[in-house]
Computed example of a mutant assay.
Amino acid sequence: MSTNLNLAPVPEVLTHRTSARRPDESDVIRRRAAAGELTRVARGLYAESAGWAALRSSEQHLVRVRSFADRIQDGDLVSHVSAAVVFGVPLLTPPPTRVHVTSTGADRRTTNATFVVHADLDPEWNRPVVTTSDGLLLCGLERLATDLALTLPFADAVVALDALLCRAVERELVRAAVARRGQKGRRRALRVVEFADAASGSPGESYARARFDQFGTPAPVLQHRFRSAGEPDIVVDFWFPESGVVVEFDGSVKYQRSEYLHGRTPQEALVDEKLREDRLRAFPEVRRMLRLTWSDLLNEWVLRAKLRQAGVRMSR
């Protein structure tokens, strides 16, 4: 069972809560919200507008989860997409405004302005429970993978499960847990579990692979190594040996974040990438190279056209 429980850092944004016990203070909060200084982020919860606007959607959801920890009923576990956000698991679709929890040991389903409460459909899968330093109770990573496979659309679930497999989640445990659930969503969930691959290098690569599957391409080789004597190996995101096509996903972070730059300037990184591409094109088995961005992945017709032009076969 996975023990890779690194949690996402809590964003630094100042929040304020209204309360019937503090009417004067609550009136001040509402006036500041009316003036645009504060943003209402949930019922009774406001954040400093400038700080809130600077947060990514996952960070905003994390603030909601942490802010309402004291409203979660005893024994309930933060679960589903909310647990994914706390664990720092990537999500393709921005998380909702409501916090998702599972009511352990009970068949209780509730939706209100703050929470979506899921019934406990697999009581034997409640352990181990993860407790954060500030007392937040979370489902474990295998339980999280199971819930996401059963509730998210295929591509969204692939993005999340690829990342979870990278964190040592055991595929067999998730497969068995999915099989124990009811019929609803089980076939699609089992397909997600089989399709997920820890070799995926990023959420963008995971989504690209789901799109390739949607179009019926041959299954690409992930992280394929091209080797030549006296030169460092070149590892590519996707290799389609049948058509001789290398596909690389170019997220903008590759030329912006320090962990990708390795001490280089963005300009130096671009030059290195050009030299790497020249070396790749020199391999006789490489006929074409295709670079994809998030914009390409999100536009079905553009993506199909680029794959077709590169010579990648599609059956759907």
Rank of each mutant, 00 (worst) to 15 (best):
A160D: 06
D156L: 05
T151Q: 07
E142D: 10
D122K: 04
E170R: 13
V117L: 10
A168H: 14
V158K: 05
C166K: 15
L150K: 03
T151R: 12
R171Y: 05
V116D: 10
A145S: 09
N126H: 11
F115R: 07
R186S: 08
K184P: 09
R171G: 01
R180C: 11
W125N: 12
P123D: 11
P153Q: 10
A177K: 01
W125C: 03
A145N: 03
A168L: 11
L136I: 14
A145M: 03
E170G: 02
K184S: 15
A149S: 12
T151Y: 01
D122G: 05
T132I: 09
T114C: 03
V174P: 01
V178Q: 02
L138K: 04
A119V: 11
L165Y: 15
L152Y: 02
K184R: 15
A149C: 08
V159F: 05
A177M: 06
A113P: 00
N126A: 14
A157P: 04
L138W: 04
L137R: 14
R143Y: 01
G135Y: 08
A179F: 05
V117I: 14
R143Q: 09
K184Q: 13
A160E: 01
R109C: 12
L150G: 03
A157V: 08
L164H: 02
G182P: 12
A155V: 13
A160C: 13
V178M: 00
D147K: 02
A113N: 10
L152N: 03
A155E: 15
R181L: 12
A176P: 00
T131Y: 03
L152P: 01
G140S: 14
R171T: 09
T151S: 14
A119M: 14
V130S: 00
R109G: 10
L152V: 05
T146R: 07
R181V: 09
V178F: 02
T151H: 06
P153C: 12
F115T: 05
G185F: 04
F154D: 06
D162M: 13
A113G: 13
R167V: 10
T132M: 09
T146S: 04
L136S: 07
G182N: 14
A145V: 00
V117N: 03
V159W: 03
D156H: 11
A163C: 13
V116H: 11
L136D: 07
P153Y: 08
D134L: 06
A179I: 09
V158P: 01
V130C: 07
D147N: 05
R109Q: 15
V174D: 00
R108E: 08
R143E: 00
L165F: 15
R188A: 14
R175N: 00
R143C: 03
R171M: 05
R186Q: 15
D134N: 12
N126L: 11
R180N: 14
F154R: 12
A176R: 09
S133R: 10
N126F: 07
G135R: 08
V178L: 02
V116Q: 11
L173D: 06
